[in-house]
Amino acid sequence: MFHPLRVSEVERLTDDAVAVTFAVPPELHEAFRHTPGQHVTLRRTVRGGEIRRTYSICAPAAPHGADPVVRVGIRLVDGGEFSTYALKELAVGDLVDVMEPLGRFTLAPRAGRFAAVVGGSGITPVLSIAATLLASEPGARFCLIRSDRTAASTMFLDEVADLKDRYPDRFQLVTVLSREEQQAGLPSGRLDQPRLRALLPALLPVEAVDGWFLCGPLGLVRGAEQALRGLGVERARIHQEVFHVDEGTAPVAVPAAAPAGSTLTATLDGRSGTWAVQEGESLLETVLRARADAPYACKGGVCGTCRSFLVSGEVRMERNYALEPEETDAGYVLACQSHPLSPEVELDFDR
């Protein structure tokens, strides 16, 4: 559900990134209490059309009894309508439609050892995860391995430095710059799979890490996962969130032709309906023709907002960068990427 929230702060982080904070009125405090790592979807109408973009919450989760803070990091994307608007026009006092927090790239604070490999704006949800964990759980440790192009392009430098100062014995920071040499630390270059496989065991006891959080561009996330799997880390301890997919290299499955006359039955907010699936459209597009309130954001298989349970029938997803293998094994699909392979399909958005 979307709510109009007023912008209370716009902070310039780098030449191409800002942090935007929204004021949450008391009656919406419970709706906007987030679990560390979750995101919100922002909505804007331009030239009669609707633009939705998903951004992770970078603020720590509010302690019990405290007011929730909704602060997101936004980096400029070439040709991106919403990010351009956020960096060049969005101002304190503006109203923006904000969806309640969603997402499963999360960590409920608990004792243990945790680590993250992030690239660029992938720091955003991990900053919330690490800050909340270290503040609320004295028995937790966190190692952050971050990759950025240059020091000037690095988001949330002050916030990460504050964690290092506040928790020197429990927070470990490793920074790699891909296009700039550092005076100290690791040599420059990309954090690819071979480099990570050699680097990670030298930094920390890989086998003792209770949870790995990988966030950033598709290439970095895939390389980090392959490195960890090669080091013997079980899949259940690896959590991923992709922030960017290079359209030129991302594999896309070509969906088989839908059976003529396929129908979709979908349940959303307790109400069900049945509609004919038109040729070439995704199941999300079928629902949106009748239900404008169907959940979605990126429509690219990345954010996971349109996650739904496949009650019956058979579908094929064109791409999936949002659902974990255990979710797909349990029957969940991305409606924006799903096409019917059976005459009848039923989805449940409420599960």
Rank of each mutant, 00 (worst) to 15 (best):
R166G: 04
D169N: 15
R113C: 12
R12A: 12
T154E: 15
T35L: 15
D94P: 10
T84M: 09
L13Q: 14
T35A: 14
L347A: 05
L173E: 13
A111D: 15
A66T: 14
L283N: 03
L218R: 14
V160C: 03
T21M: 02
V242I: 12
A161W: 07
D246C: 02
F156W: 05
V20F: 01
L268Y: 10
T249Q: 13
G185N: 10
V287E: 07
Q183N: 12
V72D: 03
P36W: 04
T263W: 08
V245L: 09
V7Q: 13
C336Q: 04
V252C: 12
T124W: 01
A292L: 13
G103D: 00
R179G: 10
E318S: 12
I74G: 08
T286C: 15
R166A: 11
L341M: 12
F213H: 07
E207Q: 12
A61W: 03
R110C: 12
R53W: 06
N320G: 11
P187Y: 05
N320L: 02
A335R: 04
G93T: 11
G230L: 02
E314W: 01
G301V: 04
G79C: 08
E344M: 06
R197S: 13
E234Q: 13
W212L: 08
V72A: 11
R190I: 15
V242S: 00
I238G: 03
G49A: 10
G112M: 11
T328A: 01
G112Q: 10
V206L: 01
L214T: 08
A108K: 13
A140F: 13
V72I: 14
F309D: 04
V345Q: 02
A17N: 04
S8R: 15
F82C: 03
R166M: 05
S312I: 03
S83R: 06
G120R: 05
F171C: 06
E281H: 02
L177W: 05
G185T: 14
A224V: 11
A266C: 10
L231W: 02
G73P: 06
F105N: 02
G79H: 04
G280N: 03
A151F: 14
E247W: 01
V252R: 15
E225R: 15
E279W: 03
D15P: 04
L231H: 03
T305L: 05
V96E: 03
E324P: 00
Q182R: 15
R75D: 07
V333E: 02
G79I: 11
R351F: 01
G73Q: 09
D210W: 00
D148T: 08
A335P: 07
R141L: 08
V176F: 09
A297K: 03
E281Q: 08
F22R: 07
S121N: 10
C306D: 13
S262F: 00
L144Q: 06
V176D: 11
L157Y: 12
E326M: 04
H64Y: 00
R104S: 11
